[in-house]
Design a protein around this nucleic acid. Structure first.
Lengths: 113, 113
DNA sequence: CCTACTGTTCGAGTTGCTTCGAACAACCGG
DNA sequence: CCGGTTGTTCGAAGCAACTCGAACAGTAGG
């Protein structure tokens, strides 16, 4: 079919339940990643991993998968790398106020908003 | 000492980390309980349990403990029973906007606020 | 007192998440 | 084409959380 390449499945945010989103955010490593994406915008996996501390690739990929399946981030092929994006607008529509509350401390100013 | 009776330990909200709070809220049963407390105000354990569906006492008590240790609810002796209260003001101060976002759908009007 | 009532704690079984190394897949440059 | 780079998937080991019955503790009432 029109399967251009390594496209991973992303859920519709309408299908995501709040507990699933909260669970994805309840891990410190994943929460940090979301915060980083909120402030610095789209990043490659390597860039996230570099700032996030030193963890094996597979572990990091697992967290990424959890966030993706919870509808919080988008993970798309970009040449040889992969771009990770926070689904901010969609999340804000599905769970109003959640992202702002969760980011909280890390959003001192309205930089990327 | 001045240990009047069955007082359970409650954390200072300043000591509660956001991931711990999110984790406590990431279980459907616990989230429902928090929503119920937000709308109906302080309840006895029996009252919560009645509305929340049919689960063994011990299971329910476990969820209550998780919420208590996450600083989300207060659980105090009231005669023969126990009163469960949502620590709304403290949570709002520690994690601004979080409760409103999480309650969201269940707060159509500003009833108890 | 002694019983009934309310709710927590303990212990065991099961399930699920986390973590990691190794194997696999896609892409780009020489 | 072939090697190096980037990142996901697989499988296994370790550990934490969920569930539930049974035992325990405090309280009110007869």
């Amino acid at each position: 079919m029109t399967d251009t390449s390594r496209q991973l499945p992303h859920p519709q945010l309408a299908d995501v339940q709040l507990p699933a989103a909260l669970f994805a955010l309840s891990d410190p490593a994943r929460l940090d990643l979301v915060r980083q994406l909120a402030v610095q915008g789209p990043l490659t996996v390597a860039q996230c991993q570099a700032t996030g501390g030193e963890v094996p690739k597979s572990t990091f990929s697992h967290h990424l998968k959890t966030l993706r399946e919870a509808g919080l981030v988008r993970n798309e092929p970009a040449g040889r790398q992969r771009t990770v994006t926070l689904r901010r607008d969609e999340i804000d529509e599905r769970f109003p106020g959640l992202l702002d509350a969760v980011l909280g401390e890390s959003l001192v100013d309205g930089a990327s908003r």
